[in-house]
Design a protein around this nucleic acid. Structure first.
Lengths: 227, 227
DNA sequence: TTATCATTCAAACGTTCGTTTGAATACCTG
DNA sequence: CAGGTATTCAAACGAACGTTTGAATGATAA
């Protein structure tokens, strides 16, 4: 399909993408100007337009560089689990861990800049600019379909509508946590040293999301339980 | 303390705040220009600077108008529950419902523009501009402290660290759901007519968040359960 | 009515934005 | 080495930004 995407990036393009990842994360897409971006990358102001065409195209390239491989890794991990299980149904927790793990492994990769990208990604979901959201939705679609099918197999008794909602909730938990954990500090008390321990975070997120996904159905209980 | 905030708003100021709520939600804080804002409000370009001082001050005013009353409502609802219980501990679900309910009641208030504000709020958590985040954190602080105390009383066996994390997760679920449900459509299949039913959403969110808050502790189970 | 204050208005301010240009330099192929 | 393509560079473009100005208008009280 997208064979034309294999054109390798030269060093200037990589420098620009790295700088953009960091500055978009810090200042937002509109807040990071072409002059800031090119200064940080150590290239000429005209380089972005020359190599990518426009600022919008650069934004798209920033997402394309990481998102496809991250979701491919998610799918590969899921299929590895299914192969190991040899036909036996997976637990919901294992499926969730396969999804969450990819994000957190990238968070740990501070050296490669993946950390900046993950934070940036969490922010992009609530970004008002429509083309960005459409692009992200499209790049997530295959992985989402695949994971949805896995959840259906793991939880055949859970109605599809409910599953979709709970996947939304799980995704929100993940996106917000990755984007805002170090920025908004609404609830005082979290140990700062824990905030960057990806392994601890993966366990905590997986536990929370698993429990939420497996929650008793709310539709039938509109009122509080009897006291 | 802030007695000077009681100065009542005139019609021009209200028109500006309403327009700002909607346009900030649609285009972001930087994307909505003074000319767009004043045009939508039907006032002169200079009116914002005259009445609020600057664009940043307008952003702050947008949040101040709604956030204090929303969090005050949350605290009032919580104290109502505690009074009804007459000393008996509240269920975690009831506490969560008190928190979530305030947001969803505002979502239902499409007429008064509360819906725009809630969406805007969800987006602000991931906003890079620091003054906005600091302001929001400060305006949330009293309610957060109050709810944290309520959760501690309801769940004395849950370690404080863990509670803080799970409150973060719950908050993320809520923020993302309110901000992105109608924008990002990552998972296909949700019935569109359900997306705006606040009562249904409250039940679903409460069920999900309650289960997540009450999840078994993950810290002790670093590895998957024995097969 | 006249004096005083608050508000609205059209116009302009200087700055920064994303993008384009055309010449200069680097790189590669024959 | 020569010729051609790819890249970098300094400079400038018009447009849009948030803000300021000073006069015009409205409301209020003596």
């Amino acid at each position: 399909m997208n064979l034309r995407a294999i054109k390798p990036l030269n060093e200037t393009q990589i420098r620009i993408l790295d700088a953009a990842e960091e500055l978009f994360m810090q200042h937002g897409f509109e807040g990071a100007s072409m002059r800031m971006l090119t200064a940080k990358a150590g290239v000429n102001l005209a380089a972005i337009n020359y190599h990518f065409g426009s600022k919008d195209a650069l934004i798209e390239a920033v997402f394309r560089r990481r998102l496809d491989v991250m979701n491919a890794e998610r799918i590969a991990q899921l299929e590895r689990l299914e192969q190991e299980a040899a036909g036996a149904p997976l637990t919901a927790e294992a499926i969730i861990r396969a999804f969450v793990g990819a994000s957190l492994r990238m968070i740990e990769d501070a050296r490669g800049g993946g950390r900046n990208f993950i934070r940036l990604l969490g922010r992009a979901y609530t970004e008002p600019a429509k083309p960005i959201r459409a692009l992200i939705g499209q790049m997530y679609a295959p992985a989402m379909e695949r994971f949805k099918a896995a959840f259906v197999r793991a939880l055949p008794e859970l109605p599809k509508d409910e599953l979709v909602w709970r996947m939304h909730f799980m995704f929100g938990t993940l996106a917000y946590t990755l984007a805002a954990t170090d920025t908004v500090q609404l609830i005082a008390g979290a140990k700062p040293e824990d905030r960057y321990d990806a392994r601890l975070l993966e366990n905590r997120l997986t536990a929370f999301m698993s429990a939420g996904l497996l929650a008793p159905l709310a539709g039938t209980i509109n009122v509080k339980k009897a006291a």
